[in-house]
Deep mutational scan, measured.
Amino acid sequence: LTVHVGNVTYHFDNPEQAEEWAKRMAKKYQGQIHVKDGQFRIE
C-alpha cells in the first residue's frame, strides 16, 4: 500500500498502518485524504 504526501511516497505492508498514517498526515497538513486504487493521497 502506498501513501503519497505531496511528492513523498511511503510504502506500507499493513493496510491499517497505511490508513492510520494517512489520517495523521492529513491532520498535520490539514489536507484531504483521497483513496484510489489502494493508494492514499494527501492533498
Rank of each mutant, 00 (worst) to 15 (best):
E19Q: 10
E19I: 14
D13I: 08
R24S: 06
D13S: 12
W21A: 03
E20P: 00
T9C: 14
K36F: 13
F12S: 00
I42R: 03
G6M: 09
Y10H: 03
T9F: 07
N7D: 07
K28E: 07
G38P: 05
A22I: 07
I33F: 08
V35F: 15
K36G: 07
G6Y: 09
E16I: 11
F12M: 00
K36W: 11
K28G: 02
E16M: 11
Q32R: 11
E43C: 15
T2Y: 10
T9E: 06
R24Y: 14
K36R: 09
K27P: 02
N7R: 13
E20C: 15
Q32E: 09
H34K: 10
Q32S: 11
Q39N: 11
G38T: 01
Q17G: 05
R41S: 10
Q32N: 06
Q32Y: 09
K28W: 10
H34S: 13
E19W: 15
G31E: 04
E19M: 14
Q30R: 13
E16D: 10
G6V: 03
V5P: 01
E19V: 12
H4G: 03
K28F: 11
L1C: 15
D37L: 05
Y10S: 00
V35E: 05
T9H: 08
G38H: 04
L1Q: 08
E20L: 12
V35Q: 05
I33A: 04
Q32K: 12
E20H: 07
Y29W: 11
R41H: 15
A26F: 06
V8P: 01
V3A: 02
G6F: 13
K28V: 08
E20W: 14
V35N: 05
I42N: 04
D37P: 00
V35A: 04
Q32T: 14
G6L: 08
V3Q: 01
H11L: 09
H34W: 08
V3P: 00
A18N: 00
E19Y: 15
R24W: 11
D37K: 03
I33W: 07
R41E: 10
D37F: 03
V5G: 01
G38A: 02
A26C: 15
I42W: 06
K28C: 15
V5N: 01
Q17C: 15
G6I: 05
N7E: 07
N14Q: 07
G31Q: 06
G38C: 15
K23F: 11
L1P: 12
K36M: 11
K27Y: 09
E16S: 10
D37W: 02
L1K: 09
A22V: 06
E16N: 10
V5I: 12
H11S: 08
Y10M: 03
F12E: 00
T2S: 09
W21S: 00
M25I: 08
E16R: 12
N7C: 15
N14D: 13
E19C: 15
A22K: 02
T9G: 02
Y29F: 09
Q30A: 11
G6R: 06
T9V: 14
Q32A: 09
R41D: 07
V35K: 05
